[in-house]
Structures are given as structure tokens and as C-alpha cells.
Nucleic acid binder design. Structure first.
Lengths: 221, 221
DNA sequence: CTATTATTCAAGTTATCGCTTGAATGATGT
DNA sequence: ACATCATTCAAGCGATAACTTGAATAATAG
């Protein structure tokens, strides 16, 4: 009763695509791109129930996009390799290039203002070296603590309005967040520009920065 | 009642992945990689009913992986751009690298024989230039007629046994088919090697060869 | 061994998907 | 206008997916 090898093969490829076909799992992958995490932490960050989160993670594991290991009572998940990130990135590129709906959503995030082109990671590294840039990490503070670009200042979207007075009006500001799937940096740049500041988004987020082999600062206990 | 922009965005990315999550649609994309096609031709090649095929194509179109145009009574579909092909390719690479099941299926296709590494397209082009290779196109003859590598000989898997005597035993044979999703070349190489011939698979298929900008010969009426 | 904590499993519900069937639409030629 | 051909739409069915709830399993601490 076995089906043809051809269909069996396509079924396996489709399995990988199916794993990427639910927003909840994309959220999980985005979190895992920041670094390995346990089930509970992932459930917290994504707002999923623990059981539901566990089930999504198992689907990702079946598709070999993530792997898991046991650490005491906890099970730690992480991305299998950089290819998983590459797949997510290509998915996003195709969607952004070709889907009008995505264009509309992204424009909406900028609050009507024209969003400038993002700053490449190489350019930011150069500007950082010469000290001519202010870098904002707009992720939650626990993620900032777990690793951030050296010299970056942490401020969530909620805190952004409060720290506005402390930002020089002539400074070039670069904001980043979790990565291309994350909208925090988009929103932060929109807020800053609305206040007349010279802000731009970093291309990609911390995972891509780390993937480039650039330095990441980790806060210690 | 609108959901958060974040979820809306992920929903769009997921839509693209979902379009790739059915074997039937992967089959259609593989066909479209050969060149643009009408609905009926695609239904024939894939074994889907016309209505079903049309619905799958519309899902691919919603995900912006394919586009369509009208030509008289017919509607012609084609891949939106090379990114669609890149996405399929990455999907396959992740599956082949990480899924044990895929490894098993591919090994099964080789009939237990160890399959040699595929020949790169650059190497084949060089060998063709010096005339030191026999190229076999193992796709159906209509696809061969619609475009093939210059100098390639057409033989379906069914015809392969018959033409065996006409193949020199000391020749280097390279077989290719529709592309990485297609198993014909795997099977052809297995058959040829079982008969003691020095056969290898081309890396990728005709779409990848064409994408490289290499010459493609089209049979005219 | 028992209690505790982290995760997974199992059952049930609702929604969606893939496929089929038959009718509707759109373009073309008589 | 009418007939024809290619494609799409609409309704219906069975299978699968997402989420919830509550129970079961694994590892550790007392």
C-alpha cells in the first residue's frame, strides 16, 4: 500500500513548509532565533498555553527546524542550524516583495511617515567604531540582558517616550529588535521620527548580527 | 476587531508557507519551473482534476508564488520570479539535510547502490564543450521538445532499457530531469549503474540550467 | 518513597483543507 | 445570438489542524 517515492518525497518537503505555515510557530522560531529557550519561557513570550506551545514545538521538531535537549526537568529547544533562519528570511522576502497586503501592513506600522531604508549591519558596525551613532535595543529588557549589541541602550516601546528628552536631536539613531519578523523597530523608528529625530532601522535584528560573527554583549548576573 | 499588525504580518508569511505545504502544489510548481503552462496541461501532468488543479493554482497565486495571464480562452500560469524557485530549493535542502526519512527515500531510489555525487552544471558544460560526455534527458518527450540541453538525448525511464545497447560502456553518462524535486534522474542513474554503466546525475535540472543562463535547445514544429 | 516542577500525552471541539461534483463565467468562432 | 471550449465558482464531504482541558510521564529535591 505504499505510495510512490515521488509523492513520499514531496510529502516530506511539504512537512517542512507546513511547519512554517502557522503564525504561532513563526513566533516561536523568532524567539528561538534569539537563543535557546525552555518551553515555559517560550509560552510566556508568545502568549500560548504551555500545552499548546509544546505541541507546536513538536511539530517544528518533526520538521527538523528545531532540536531539543533535556536539562534537568526542563526541555530546551533551539534552531537546528542557520538554514532555518535562512528559510524564514526567504519566506519573508517573497511575501514582502510580492504580497500587496504585507506592503500595506508595513506602511501602517510607520504611521503614514515614509520609512527610510534600513541601515546595513556593516554600516552600523563602522559607525559604532567611530562613535557617531546612538543604538537603541527596543526588545524587552530580559532579551536585552541575554545579549545585545555592545553600546546599545535598551528601551521598550513603552519607555521610548520617556527617554526622548535624553536623545540628542542631531544624533543619528539606529533601532533594532529581534529580527526581520519583529515589528518593534519599525514602530520605534516611526515614533522617533514623529518627534523629529533622525532614526533608522537596522537591517535584521540581533540574531542576524550574531550570525555575522559580530560582537554581542551579555549581562552577567 | 482588527488583530495586531504583528499577527497580521505573520499571517501573511504563513500564507506563503502554507501554499508550499501540499505535495500537489509542489508538483505544480515543479512543472511551472519548466516553463509557463495552461491549467489543463498542468492537470494532465500532475494527475489532478482540472477543477482541483485550478484551485491549487489560485492558492499559489494568492501567495504570490505564481502569476497568471489570459491567452484567448486559456489562462497561463507561471512562476512569479526566481525567488519562488529559491524558496523551493531551500525547502528541499533543509528537508534533505535534516530529515532522516528523506535520506531513506532517496537511498531507496538508488536501489541500494551507492549513488555518486551529482555533476555540477559548470562541469557538465565543460565536458559538453570537449565532447567527452553523453547527456540523457529522462523527462517525457513533450517536455524535452519544449526545451533541453543542446546535445542531450531523450529517453524516458521506460525507454531506457531499450537504448542500453546503444550506450558506450566507456562513456561518462550524465542524466538530468525536471530539477531537484524530480526523481527520474535518480532512477535513471540507478538503472544505468545496475547495468555497469558509468552514469551520474546532473545537479538540479533544466530550470536550474536555464537559470544559469546556459543554452537551451527548443524543437520547432 | 513522596512531593514538586516541567513537559508531554490524550480526548474533544471547532475551523480549515483537499477533493469531488455540477453549475456558472469568459472568450472565441459560426 | 448561439455553440464551444477553458477555467472558475459553489456546495458538500471526509480528513486534518489548532486550541483547550485534564491526566500522565520524567527528572529532581526532600
Amino acid at each position: 500500500m505504499s505510495i510512490s517515492p515521488k509523492l513520499a518525497l514531496l510529502e516530506e518537503y511539504a512537512l517542512v513548509a507546513r511547519a512554517l505555515s502557522a503564525p504561532a510557530r513563526l513566533m516561536l522560531l523568532e524567539q528561538l532565533a534569539q537563543g535557546e529557550r525552555g518551553v515555559e519561557a517560550l509560552a510566556d513570550k508568545t502568549g500560548l498555553t504551555i500545552a499548546n506551545c509544546s505541541q507546536h514545538l513538536q511539530q517544528l521538531r518533526r520538521a527538523a527546524l528545531v532540536t531539543s535537549r533535556r536539562d534537568g526537568k526542563a526541555v530546551i529547544y533551539r534552531l537546528t542550524d542557520a538554514k532555518t533562519l535562512a528559510l524564514m528570511d526567504l519566506l519573508r522576502i517573497v511575501a514582502e516583495r510580492n504580497l500587496a497586503q504585507v506592503e500595506r501592513i508595513l506602511r501602517g506600522l510607520s504611521g503614514g511617515y515614509d520609512a527610510p531604508e534600513p541601515v546595513s549591519r556593516a554600516v552600523l558596525a563602522a559607525r559604532l567604531a567611530e562613535g557617531s551613532v546612538t543604538v537603541l535595543d527596543v526588545r524587552p529588557s530580559d532579551e536585552y540582558a541575554a545579549g545585545h549589541i555592545p553600546g546599545a541602550r535598551n528601551a521598550t516601546l513603552a519607555q521610548l517616550e520617556q527617554i526622548l528628552p535624553t536623545l540628542a536631536h542631531d544624533a543619528q539613531i539606529v533601532a533594532y529588535c529581534r529580527g526581520p519578523y519583529c515589528v518593534y523597530a519599525h514602530q520605534a523608528v516611526a515614533t522617533l521620527r514623529r518627534h523629529g529625530l533622525n532614526a533608522r532601522r537596522l537591517e535584521g535584528g540581533l540574531p542576524e548580527w550574531r550570525e555575522d560573527g559580530r560582537p554581542v554583549l551579555i549581562d552577567v548576573g
